[in-house]
């Protein structure tokens, strides 16, 4: 698999996208940021992403619905769920439904990078590392 990994990041907190987009871009990832579920779903209809990172709790369309849509339409896409409250139930529900993994807020960019790295490897990708090294 060549080219950079296509990442979709969905979180209704603008700062999350604002900070994580450059943080992930540094590691050679191509990141599209969405602040609402419906916009993300619209984009998903147009494009297949390698990895979708989505906040679980959003108005209108939440992370679980994004997860369900991805699972139904794109088998190979890995979904990473961001939970605002790391309750066991939400995490278990996401994993049972077929999420690749979950990450609890608050987290550091490196925490997400580690999860994305594992997801990339699961996709047969060599893994991510800082691009300008």
């Amino acid at each position: 698999m060549n080219g950079s990994l296509q990442i979709m990041l969905v979180d209704d907190e603008p700062i999350v996208g604002k900070r994580l987009k450059p943080a992930l871009a540094k590691y050679g990832l191509e990141v599209e940021v969405f602040e609402d579920g419906p916009g993300a779903l619209r984009r998903l209809r147009e494009k297949e992403f390698d990895i979708v990172v989505t906040d679980v709790r959003m108005e209108d369309v939440d992370g679980m619905q994004v997860l369900e849509y991805v699972l139904a339409n794109s088998k190979r896409t890995k979904v990473i769920i961001i939970t605002g409250y790391a309750t066991v139930e939400v995490a278990r529900e996401a994993l049972v439904k077929g999420a690749f993994d979950f990450i609890a807020k608050p987290f550091k960019p490196d925490d997400l990078r580690a999860v994305i790295d594992r997801a990339a490897k699961a996709l047969g990708h060599p893994g991510i590392r800082k691009s300008d090294d």
Partner: peptide
């Protein structure tokens, strides 16, 4: 409190991400 603890996670997460990136870059 359950709701508030949850709500607090968002600004804390924002602070954590922003501070991390500030330090990193």
């Amino acid at each position: 409190t359950a709701g508030v603890a949850h709500e607090l996670n968002n600004p804390i997460n924002n602070i954590m991400l922003t501070a991390s990136m500030l330090e990193e870059d």
